[in-house]
Amino acid sequence: MTDSQLQKGFEQPVRDAQQAFRQILKVMSEPGVMRTLDHAGALAELSPAALTTLLSLMDQTTSLWLSPSLNTDPIRTNLSFHAGAPCVNDPTDADFVMARAGELCSLEGLKIGEPEYPDRSCTLVIQLDQLEAGDDQPDLLTLKLSGPGIPGQRMLSLSHPGEALLAYLLERPDPFPQGLDLILVNGTRVAAIPRTTHVEVI
């Protein structure tokens, strides 16, 4: 570990992690809702929302796979220092996948949980170039979300999340209650598309 690459995590670890967790809970239970996550600063290529999410959700018992462009020394050093989370080389072993849009070429083999324990699945944290609520962004991809936690429907506009991920969201190949949950981050903003949400491209 190189000491000089260390940077500050949360200002107040307990309070910040609880507040961030509450926001993540909010966006997970009401898919398409956007919240601000800026309890931790940016770390190299990781946006503040991405780092806050990882620091809130991870500890020694959760394994993390970092996509190639994020798998750098400063990021690994800081995550292992602040969260103690072990990094794995194979995404199929990971409880959390942190990737930039398009870097996850295949979702084949990721942990989807077991029918008795659907919680033992992988959570994807995807860092996007753009993310907006609503559907008034003509140059972005607009998703229409419906399902539990959504009265009627909600619109989410985003830059392309990658072919594999988009195909997964539209097809939902895993039998419920198994599946992957998705947290979308951009800058200091976060939104989520859990496995229960029905997704259409507009």
Binding site: L6, K8, E11, Q12, F81, H82
Partner: peptide
């Protein structure tokens, strides 16, 4: 001094 991990 920058505090990286506040006393805990």
């Amino acid at each position: 001094f920058d505090i990286i991990r506040a006393p805990e």
